[in-house]
Amino acid sequence: MSADRLDRERILNVVLPLGIFLAALAAWEILVAVKNIPPYILPAPSRIAATLVSDWGTLSGSLWVTLSITFSALFAAVAGGVALAVLFAQWKWVERSFFPFAVILQVTPVVSIAPLLLIYLDGHTAVLVCAFVVAFFPILSNTALGLASADHNLVDLLDLYRASRWQQLLFLRLPSALPYFLGGLRIGGGLSLIGAIVAEIAAGSAGQGAGLAFRIVESGYRLNIPRMFAALVLISVAGILIFLTFTLLSHLMLSRWHDSARRRES
């Protein structure tokens, strides 16, 4: 009985969404075939798949560029965000003095900074900085919130045992902040990809360092719509993989203790 129910649940959870997704693709395919829509207006999924294969040489290079920018920016954002959050937690005046800068960076849309950065920096660096700027804030603010959320009784207990500030940070505040940090990382991971794409579109940089965004712009000029879609597919897949990776990481690190990663007993 219960095994049956488990099976049914699995079917509903996995097979149903997958089926609906495939059905949507099939409907798209059929629509294009029946209405005889030309590929320069709307390519069929099969055509997009074929383009992915035939243009893989160009697209994979661009995918690599985009991913390397995304992860370099994210890495810098994690290092900077966590370091600054720790400084915030240790010294209140640092937080009060520097938080406004972080907010200004956050509320100013990255598209509007990109042209300025392109004047100051070379294309590649400017794109990297843009991706960093958007990923930095969620990691900083989440980590800072986490560091401040340590159980007050545990803080008292460490005071009672005359723990130093750094012991308090190491034994209590950093582990308390972990779930918040991982939440920030998930948001930051997605945002740094968006930042990299948006900045590259603004930069329009060509040549060897051309990422997926440039391929989209380029394909638009050439009315190579199937390749445009193929690049879009790669961006989506990259975004989904980034999200899944961090969700898995978060699950692995928290599954033994944090409510967010635990199944509720029914």
């Binding site: 159980d151 009784n153 207990l157 582990p175 308390s176 972990l178 203790w257 944090h258």
Partner: peptide, 12 residues
């Protein structure tokens, strides 16, 4: 010192 809640570190 023992608090009203057990005040354990849940992560370890």
């Amino acid at each position: 010192f023992v608090f009203q809640e057990s005040t354990l570190m849940p992560w370890t």
